[in-house]
Amino acid sequence: MRRIEIILSRLLWLIPTLVGLVVVVFFIANVVPTDPARIIAGENATTEQVEALRAELGFDRPLWEQLGIYVRDLATGNMGRSLYTQRPIADDLAHRLPATLELTFAAIIIAIGLGIPLGVVSAVKRNSLTDQVLRVLSVSGLAIASFWLAMELQMLFSTRWGLTPLNGRISGFGPDEITGFFVLDSLLTWDMESLGGALLHLLLPAVTLALPAAATILRFTRAGVLEVINSNFVLYETAMGLPRGLIIWKYVLRNALISTVTQIGLIFGVLFSGAVVVEAVFDWPGLGTYAVQSILQSDNKAILGFTILVGVVFIVVNLIVDILHTFIDPRTLK
């Protein structure tokens, strides 16, 4: 299959995947025994008032009909209105998406930057002291609860040493908004003050989110390198006298990354949805805090919208991973 065929077939698969996602998420959201109409109407509302509100919001219709309406609206980008903010959910999500994506991207960059080189070193020097230390650290990295790590980092870096801001995304107004990504926007507008502020605010939450991911990437890279390092082509390259650095960091690493890239795709999705806790601790105005509020308010449609968005991010990232694979491993194009 050629690359374009692979991409097109994956894009075609997007449609049934998305439909399946929406249907499943919609029914799960409606299984929860809450009564949004009563919550909106308030404690003092009469039964008639609640019924009227329910009819107005369409909650009295059969579930399949509600699903039909929801899908029809969704196709035009309309996810309904949030019961809590009274604004279109799609707008709320779109407004908060850049904050979470920025945090997730920062975290995944840190995780890759730490995980891959350390994984290679760990494999090349396997069973050495370096390897043992890295393996212990990576197990700890996976075991540490992120809310605890977040608070420890806050206490050290913000409270004790005053190096980083305690929470939030920026102090002051921030850069002029173009994309909603503060780092990118400050670069585009060449606003160095905002750039510094955005990066400093980003540092602790991104590191908190990144460490467990880095540990996973380290372990996969280490396993990948160990799998490849005794293969015949490494023996051949060594026997032909190519420099060790070239063999390890180019020829071995590319082979080892085949499985690691799949893992990084999954991790990105996990980080994106898992940002909820970190956002809560750092008061990060992203999707996570929005999701928490929506759940507390029984704001079903907002929860639905958030869940679908997370699903879409997962699907898109996996699509990107599939495309990346065709570049890393030409055998997929056979």
Partner: peptide, 30 residues
């Protein structure tokens, strides 16, 4: 001397070339 004055022809040509790089790139590095 290795790879320069003494070179090597491996036993198994199927697994001795790196599967994820073009032949040209591998020869270029050599």
């Amino acid at each position: 001397i290795r790879g320069r004055r003494i070179t090597f022809i491996p036993q198994d040509p199927f697994s001795s070339l790196n599967p994820v790089f073009t032949i040209g790139e591998q020869i270029d590095d050599l």
